[in-house]
Design a protein around this nucleic acid. Structure first.
Length: 265
DNA sequence: TGAATTGTTATCGT
DNA sequence: AACGATAACAATTC
């Protein structure tokens, strides 16, 4: 499931063949998750040059040379693939042809992904919290975000309006690294705990990027972060700190993994 | 076969 | 009424 590190990895891999290129054509037969509708979106982006590719949370942002933006969200199963001649891709939902001759396919088995064109980044992303690897993410900013809510840590951290880019895996890993229970009320954290969590979030995300993301199933290939997981997907296996078996539970409708000894309520 | 997955939206309850 | 929790939903894989 692409979260911040996976999205960052995807962007880095496609960037060299997209930045600076002109979009010569765009086709999509998949209207459902397109804003505006595919034909209109095509009219808006064909002939545009891509100035740069950036990431905001889990959104992939194409900065076009008319100062508009194309946003792609991979959601569960979206991925980019370069066309290889003679090979049909069953899951191709849309594609871009560039002046280089390259064709980029947007493939998405589950069709949850979205493609959106707008004149501002905010119109694409909607309300988003701080970028966790930016300087704006501080212990203080975490404290003020938590002060406004009565919710538990896990749903608060999964909420993209709190911090942009965290998903189920990295939230579990960060909470373990910080020694905090996912059901703990966010606003009750003390300064030491906030400091630990702040550092843990940055550490797990950086580790994820360093490992090119996590390959946990057929959805996202190539990364090795799954080998560094300390709790996610490790139910019944010994905690790497204290040997207590990792416990799987359900928090905020999500599969959640904790060490019951290291992470107390 | 059903559980799992994301993020948005709708709905329910306190 | 406002907030938080919960459910539904999109579609697919194993």
């Amino acid at each position: 499931m692409p979260e911040l590190p996976e999205v960052e990895t995807v962007i880095r891999s496609v960037r060299p063949r997209i930045e600076g290129r002109e979009i010569r054509d765009y086709r999509s037969r998949w209207a459902k998750n397109s804003t505006p509708a595919p034909a209109r979106l095509r009219d808006r982006i064909v002939g545009r040059r891509v100035k740069k590719l950036t990431r905001r949370g889990k959104h992939i942002l194409w900065h076009l040379d008319d100062d508009t933006f194309l946003g792609v969200h991979l959601r569960m199963s979206g991925r980019f693939e370069w066309r290889t001649p003679g090979t049909a891709n069953r899951w191709a939902r849309a594609w871009w042809d560039f002046d280089s001759g390259d064709r980029l396919l947007f493939c998405d088995a589950r069709k949850f992904g979205t493609i959106r064109h707008a004149s501002t980044i905010a119109d694409i992303t909607g309300p988003l919290g701080v970028e966790p690897l930016s300087r704006g993410f501080t212990v203080r900013s975490l404290q003020s975000a938590f002060a406004e809510t009565g919710r538990a840590l896990k749903p608060t951290l999964l909420d993209q309006r709190t911090i942009a880019g965290l998903g189920n895996i990295y939230v579990d890993e960060a909470l373990f690294a910080a020694g905090l229970h996912p059901l703990r009320a966010a606003h009750t954290l003390g300064l030491n705990e906030l400091t630990r969590l702040h550092a843990a979030i940055r550490e797990v995300l950086r580790a994820g990027i360093r490992n090119n993301g996590a390959s946990i199933d057929w959805v996202y290939p190539g990364g090795s972060m799954q080998d560094a997981f300390r709790v996610y997907g490790r139910a019944d296996q010994p905690c790497k700190i204290c040997d207590t078996p990792i416990v799987a539970l359900r928090v905020a409708q999500r599969g959640t993994h904790i060490c019951p000894a290291c992470q107390r309520t």
